Simulated scan of single mutants.
Amino acid sequence: MARADLLLDLVQAERMGDKDRFRVLVEAVIAEERANQHHLLADRLSEIITTSGKGAARDDRAAAMRDLVEEIVPRKTLDELELAPIPGRVIAEIVEEQKRSELLRSYGIEPRNRILLSGPPGNGKTSVAEAIATELMLPLYVIRYEGVVSSFLGETAARLDSAFEFARSRRCVFFFDELDTIAKERADEHETGEIKRVVSTLLLQIDRLPAHVVLVGATNHSELLDRAAWRRFQVRAELEAPSRAQATKYLEDLAGRFGGDLGFAPRTLADKLAGASFAELEEFALDVRRRAVLQLPDTDLRTIVKERVEHWRSQAAE
């Protein structure tokens, strides 16, 4: 966070209407935050004070690591997600603990920073990781398995070490989607010695991870995870397919976001699309609005919805 004297000067310049000095001070804040590796905050401040929306140069180290980790600019917020009460509470607690980490440390307590998300695909695991990064105003780094996993003996573990070394050096959210790819149960007799070495490396690196790095793991198959890897996560949340009430609420939100109704009442649509994931509901709503726009001015919304419902059901039955 920027120095107190800099913030005081910034507020004073704004109150006095000194736009030039205000801009200079904001630029000083941007430089300080970038020096502290708070690149997402620095970029957002740059976008606010520039007309082009282009900030200063990004993290050079992140560019050098792009084969192992991918940086994603987070957009989603927790308020945009439809979460069941228990997962919603524990995820909000993680965010609060990270935001108020200094208070916790003054009492000798570290904030929790490792959360495992499990459940069927399409129900928000990636979105939760993105929302955590947004709420904390931190960059989101996603592990790239195609860059980490190698056919050469020992190479995968070495690359994994490099990725973790990169993450430890900055405040960030570090996301492992499909964690079971490299954290498989070591007791499985079908697994090779190499994957067992990779899992051991992963466990060691997780243990060494500082509290300022939020590690988010996601898996569709929690039963495949090594038990020791599973225990490394302080918080575990199951993200299940939406209930009828959740699907109804989400369809209402989607109709508002896409700028129009969806042909039927959200509750009726929720019944017709029973069993759909959040991702499938979003894609359905977007598909309906897309066809509605393309058929203007003679749009028959109810016919579009009926056709799309039949198509979704046929795919779900396959």
Rank of each mutant, 00 (worst) to 15 (best):
G275P: 07
E102Y: 08
F284V: 03
V198S: 06
V24M: 06
D161C: 02
E307I: 00
R66K: 14
L239E: 12
R227L: 10
T268M: 03
L269G: 01
D20A: 14
L204E: 06
A4W: 12
E27L: 09
E110L: 13
C172P: 03
R186W: 05
L251D: 12
L140T: 03
T181G: 01
E310W: 06
D60K: 11
A237W: 08
E194K: 10
R34S: 13
R171S: 14
H39V: 13
D59N: 15
R44G: 00
M137T: 10
A84E: 15
D226I: 06
P87N: 02
P242C: 02
L7W: 08
D261L: 00
I206K: 08
W312G: 00
A270F: 03
A64K: 15
V11I: 15
A63V: 13
L273P: 02
V24G: 00
G122F: 02
E282S: 14
N113G: 09
A158N: 13
E27A: 07
L116E: 10
G263S: 13
G17R: 09
L136Y: 08
F166S: 09
L10T: 14
D67Q: 15
E130Y: 12
L25R: 09
L25Q: 09
L225W: 10
T248I: 04
A64E: 15
R15V: 10
E240L: 12
K19D: 08
V173F: 14
Q315G: 07
R112K: 12
E130T: 12
G55Y: 09
Q12G: 00
E307F: 04
D5I: 06
T219W: 05
A229F: 07
T201W: 06
L239F: 06
V90Q: 12
E97H: 12
G275Y: 13
E96Y: 03
L179K: 04
R197P: 08
E82M: 11
T219G: 03
